[in-house]
Every structure is written in structure tokens, then in C-alpha cells.
Design a protein around this nucleic acid. Structure first.
Lengths: 147, 147
DNA sequence: AGAAAGTTGCTAACCTCTTTAGTAATCTAG
DNA sequence: CTAGATTACTAAAGAGGTTAGCAACTTTCT
């Protein structure tokens, strides 16, 4: 058996990464509670801010079943944040689109964060950006390796 | 009102960051399901792998109430992963410590990820490490700003 | 063209985990 | 030494998830 007693993540970079991941896990719960929605609804709003997708794809991104996603969408529709539209070519599918109210809500809750992240990104020079992107991609691979 | 229609995170770095955060959010659910525990139990195991803390502090780190944390600890104790010990000086408090079985479980489920992250960290030179750490800390601040 | 198989989206019943509310024990500050 | 926090817990109630199953539609195979 390996050395279980060795501590993980003792360098500054690893500590910083753990803090980022913890913050990114806790922040949605805090925001969701404040705006009286579930974390899944908030995550759905965030995903739909990027591009319209259907319930099945949204379920994959949320990491829950399509059954649970149906309920999430019901709540978002009831709040006027999302509209269900028929898929243009595939009769089985539905396309979920943010309403203006939904877009405003997403912006209100998450806009400040994305603005700061954008400013952070723009403060990097080309070399730094390459270093950071490479790090993030390799860290993502490490995280995904346990899924 | 600001420009709601502008898309967020369109650069490579921002895309990579979003993928990391999504992976770091989805991975615990996948691992927890596989090892038949709740995500809170897994997160508790991870936090307790770093240092022993009490239920109140653990509740803060998990982002749930102490009532919910009591139940999480009950389950971990029932599975033999954690032991409740009295705090040496404060009579109100309890100190939670991983058992050998708990440490082995944490290592089994998360060890591969931390090993890869460690290798990633070690592949950075001093300058790169400084760039990455600074980026992670500023990204964490951005995420925390919406909490 | 028609049958078989897969995908999509939903409902219903159930179950797990969390919150709210309240209590007892202990510590700390005035 | 009393008043107010803090810690940890239990019990009742609620939110949100899963499993199971179905109907509609699309795709693939023959």
C-alpha cells in the first residue's frame, strides 16, 4: 500500500487550487439561497446563458437525471426565466431558451463574477495566458480522472 | 444597465476555467455515488484528510447547517471512517478524526487525482508557479465576490 | 416500406438529505 | 456570577433527487 500519511496539496499552488474549487462549490449554494432558487436552477441558468440546449443535454451538464431536470425546467418556466420551444427539425426534442427576465437574473447574480474574471484574464500577457490555460486543462484532466 | 448580450468567458483561459470548475463540481457526485456515500460525506472525508476539525467548522466548510453535519458525521462514524473525540480544552467541542479505514477510503477515491495534481505542480518552474498561484487566488476572489 | 431499437421528455412514487426549530451543556465577557 | 455566545445534538418537515415506466418521435436495419 502507498504512503497514506503523506499530506496532499501542501504547496502554495495546490492550496490555492483547493481554495478555488471550494469557493466555486460553495458560491452557487450561497447565491441560489439568496435568490430563492435551487443550485440546479442557478447552474441551469448559467449553462443556458452560454447557449440554448435541450433537457437531455442540460441533465448531462447538471449531473442529474432527465427526470430531475424536468422539475428544474418546470420551476424556471414558472418563474418566467426560461421558455420551452420545439426543436426545429427533431420532433422529440425541446429547446430551452432564456427569457429576457432569465438573462437579467443570470446577469444580476453572476455578472460581477464574470466581469472580474474577464478583467483577470485581460491582465495576463500571452505567455502567462498560455501557462495558465495549460495548467487549468491539466488540472481538469486530473479531476476528471476520478469520475 | 450593462450589456447583457455580451457572452462571458469567450477566451481560452476562461473556457478552461469553466471546464475545471464544472468538472470539480461533477466529479464528487460521481465518486460519491460509486462509493455509496453522499457528496457531503466525501467532502467531509477530504477536509478531514487535511486536518482534524469539529462539527461546527466542518459545517462551515461544507456549506450546510450543523444539524445536517451531525447526520453526515453519524454516517461516517457508522461506516467506521471517522471517530468523535472530545476536545482537549473546550468541553463543548468535539474533534473529528479520520480512522485508518477512513484515511484508506479517502486515498482510494481521491488519491489518483491528488497524485496527478502533485505531478502537475512539480512540472512547473518557479516563475510559472507564481503566475498560476496568482491567477488562482484572483479567480478565487472573483468567485467569492458573489457569495 | 416496415419493424426494431434508440432517444427524448415527462409523470408518479419513493427516498435521501437538508432545513427549521428547539434543547442542553459549556465557555466567555461584563 | 450572571447574560449572552457557541457547540452539538434531536425531531419534524420540506426540497430536490432517483428509479421505473410510458408515449412520441427518429434512426437504423432488412
Amino acid at each position: 500500500m502507498a504512503d497514506n500519511s503523506s499530506r496532499w496539496g501542501t504547496t502554495g499552488t495546490m492550496e490555492a487550487l483547493q481554495r478555488l474549487i471550494d469557493a466555486a462549490t460553495l458560491a452557487p449554494a450561497a447565491v441560489a439561497r439568496r435568490s430563492e432558487m435551487s443550485t440546479s436552477e442557478l447552474h441551469a441558468l448559467r449553462h443556458l446563458s452560454r447557449e440554448p440546449v435541450g433537457p437531455a443535454e442540460l441533465a448531462r451538464r447538471l449531473g442529474v437525471t432527465t427526470a430531475a431536470t424536468s422539475a428544474v425546467i418546470d420551476r424556471l418556466v414558472a418563474h418566467g426565466h426560461v421558455a420551452r420551444r420545439p426543436h426545429p427539425t427533431d420532433g422529440r426534442r425541446t429547446v430551452l431558451e432564456l427569457t429576457d427576465a432569465g438573462r437579467a437574473e443570470a446577469y444580476r447574480e453572476l455578472g460581477a463574477m464574470f466581469q472580474q474574471l474577464r478583467a483577470l484574464d485581460e491582465s495576463l500577457d500571452e505567455h502567462e495566458r498560455a501557462v495558465v490555460t495549460d495548467f487549468l486543462e491539466r488540472a481538469t484532466a486530473a479531476v476528471r480522472s476520478i469520475m
